[in-house]
Amino acid sequence: MSQLTGGSSGGEAGRAGHAGEAGRPEDAGRWRGVERGLLRMRRTLLTAVSVPLVAVLGPVLWLAAGPWWAVLAAAPAAVALWGWGAIARNWASWRYSERDDDLLIERGVVWRGLTVVPYGRMQLVEVTSGPLERHFGLARVQLHTAAATTDAHIPGLAPEEAERLRERLTELGEARSAGL
């Protein structure tokens, strides 16, 4: 297991304090975070959008309306700067824990959410990985139950970890399966 989670060890060490404040102390040690690649991917996306926006908006406003109007281009820059930090906080908030009978997923800084899915209720476990996610070595696990309102997904897992999680969840789901 250690080689599988090795990639995210830095992230977990950084969140040791965060994990300590979990609701149930006996589970505190078993929380896992998501890969650092997710942070890099989101920051890359943010840069790819905001830098060209500021670079184009500034000169265009300068030429069209005057130098004072060009200051308006600082607004998206400020939003991007705030986003840089917000992405890090959001990334650090994602964590999941495999307990004996259910999977816990916790996420969010401003809007917080905690989802508990009993293994026996899983209908389908899906692992997806888009081109961008593959570039950053990431995969996403989505759990489906019979209720469409169940919002249980974990973004930014290492592909091996996603694979392992899928295998384990499917196995546990079969062992504990129950009807509707």
Binding site: W111, R112, G113, T115, V117, T145, T150, D151
Partner: peptide, 20 residues
């Protein structure tokens, strides 16, 4: 027996008043 999943959510305003 019919519960499929359990969720806890908390918005910023609720957090200010320690509600969820």
């Amino acid at each position: 027996a019919k519960v499929q999943s359990v969720r806890l959510t908390q918005g910023p305003w609720e957090r200010a008043f320690k509600l969820a």
